[in-house]
């Protein structure tokens, strides 16, 4: 790159660099500091060393929160990516109405979380919810988010996230699918490969870079889940310890109890856990991700 181009590049990058420094790195650095402080917002932070971590680590609520977010991730991520692949395959056709269908699949992604949660609260209602009404025809019934089994509650909420998020993941997957060279597929045709063999033996391996990217992004989203748990399980009176997630705990510590230090410590604990998972994912990349 010429010096002139480099100068212009820096000029255009400056606003974003300033934004990153002020709105991302500055709060990040201070949140490290706050994680070691007792800080109630009203008074200056007071250094307490590892006290916040010492309080969080033995607290059953902390580990229940991580248990729930991992259960959420395990039920949400694989299903969402699998469905995104199916939908992307369906939308990767030469149909006249394809634009319409793509919009339909993407629409849930645009719906605000609060609206989604309100609608699903009614749909999931054990007494008069339409889902149970439908299930009753098959002799089935579920308590969904009213269940006493935490796993049922968590999977009920992950189903909502799947419904809401699958559209945007489908768009990513569709882009990756359209990037697959037609030569490869034509060669497979000549070799007599059927549609199923082509999907699993040609398309799937070539989609693994995108699946890998979606996995990285989804794990961050799953561990940071907040809206559905807070809106549907909180109801203004806080989320039960058995059903909480790290994002909700962090919110309560920082904004309800004004224990900013505890909230910051929680966020760095989450950061460490997500970091470890991401490192493991990255290490495993070369074993299953195929670049064309």
């Amino acid at each position: 790159m010429s010096k002139k181009h480099a100068r212009w590049s820096w000029l255009f990058l400056t606003p974003f660099i300033i934004g990153m420094l002020v709105f991302t790195f500055y709060p990040m650095i201070f949140s490290v500091y706050y994680a070691f402080c007792d800080y109630n917002i009203f008074n200056p932070p007071k250094w307490v060393g590892l006290a916040n971590f010492a309080r969080l680590l033995p607290d059953p609520a902390t580990w229940k929160a991580y248990r729930n977010s991992f259960a959420f991730a395990l039920t949400y991520i694989p299903v969402q990516i699998f469905l995104a692949m199916i939908f992307a395959s369906a939308l990767n056709q030469k149909l006249k109405t394809i634009g319409f269908w793509r919009v339909i699949y993407y629409l849930p992604s645009l719906t605000p979380w609060v609206a989604v949660c309100t609608v699903f609260t009614v749909l999931y209602n054990p007494a008069y919810g339409p889902i149970n009404y439908f299930l009753s025809f098959f002799g089935l019934r579920s308590e969904f988010i009213d269940s006493t089994n935490w796993f049922v509650v968590v999977t009920s909420l992950s189903a909502i996230s799947i419904w809401k998020g699958v559209g945007s993941q489908t768009i990513y997957m569709l882009a990756a699918m359209q990037n697959i060279s037609s030569d490869v597929l034509e060669a497979a045709d000549i070799d007599g490969a059927g549609p199923i063999a082509k999907f699993f033996k040609i398309k799937m391996p070539l989609l693994t870079p995108m699946i890998f990217l979606l996995l990285l992004l989804s794990i961050k989203g799953a561990v940071g889940v907040f809206d559905s748990f807070y809106t549907m399980l909180g109801g203004g009176t806080g989320v039960n310890e058995n059903l909480t997630v790290p994002g909700v705990l962090q919110y309560e510590y920082e904004f309800v109890f004004r224990k900013v230090g505890l909230g910051a410590a929680m966020s760095w604990l989450t950061f460490a856990i997500v970091g470890i998972i991401t490192i493991i994912q990255t290490k495993s990349e070369e074993k299953w991700v195929h670049y064309e």
Binding site: T237, V239, F257, R258
Partner: peptide
């Protein structure tokens, strides 16, 4: 705000 939330739950 903290003890009220504890009792709420």
């Amino acid at each position: 705000s903290e003890w009220r939330t504890i009792i709420d739950k």
